[in-house]
Design a protein around this nucleic acid. Sequence first.
DNA 1: ATCGTTTATTTGACTGATTCCAGAAAAGCT
DNA 2: AGCTTTTCTGGAATCAGTCAAATAAACGAT
Lengths: 141, 141
Amino acid sequence: MPTIDAAALLRGADLRVTRQRVAVLAAVTANPHCDADSVATAARRELGSVSTQAVYDVLRALTEAGLVRRIEPAGSPARFETRTGDDHHHLVCRACGAIADVRAVAGEARCLDVQDPRGFALDATEATFWGTCPDCLATRT
Amino acid sequence: MPTIDAAALLRGADLRVTRQRVAVLAAVTANPHCDADSVATAARRELGSVSTQAVYDVLRALTEAGLVRRIEPAGSPARFETRTGDDHHHLVCRACGAIADVRAVAGEARCLDVQDPRGFALDATEATFWGTCPDCLATRT
DNA sequence: ATCGTTTATTTGACTGATTCCAGAAAAGCT
DNA sequence: AGCTTTTCTGGAATCAGTCAAATAAACGAT
């Protein structure tokens, strides 16, 4: 069933439906905030083999088509997720790099509007909250 | 006079005062949002020569001491600035990478609080606004 | 002022993530 | 079936940043 979803999504974005693209899209959907390397691993588990370049190509194509979002917290390799519609933000653990989603709260859009955009034509807002995740808090006793 | 400032700042942060550190701190102060490479260039202009390694070490030391802030917009190398006290945010141009500051608006702190931090102990918030800068808008006529 | 300990800097090799290259082979779509 | 886009192989290059060992400099006490 995830296969059907992915194929439909690709078609809807005017992208050719290939096994690699389906697998990559499924991998990103299945585990959000994953990096290129773990996407490649997941895709290989499903397809047998995929070239690293294909994975990067596909990720770029999907990103450009708006099917996946690329996030890049300071200090960690690029990560990918499929929730592109809602503008949620991210909690990042300084210790282990874990990422969690926070949904945008009602009225937040207004709060994040810039009063004085200096002539910039803005199209997106990205908020990152830095801290320590529950697991790391516990470990650091 | 900038030399005196920098030395005092370093001393105040319990850091040894070296020519390299003074030069790097001055370079970051003089042009905000600069990357490691342009800091190195500026420092070399002033000192004659500095190792790349020293520049990275110094930038890290200054960052840890809280004298400079490190920002890292997706797709661009790390950048540094000296405005560490106020928590302002950044406008980034997708086309040319230019960065501008936006001061935190009154009441924003509350808006950027996370309603449901999932157990994370948060210590910082970072907002990045993506768009196109005035120059690039003009060029793209 | 000088000495000695501590801390920086230099040097040069090296990693990791990502991109590029280019021709050949394999698909997808009409 | 045929044209076009995508993927593969595999090598290589880039860029930002790190590691480690040896040298040099700063600071505080003598």
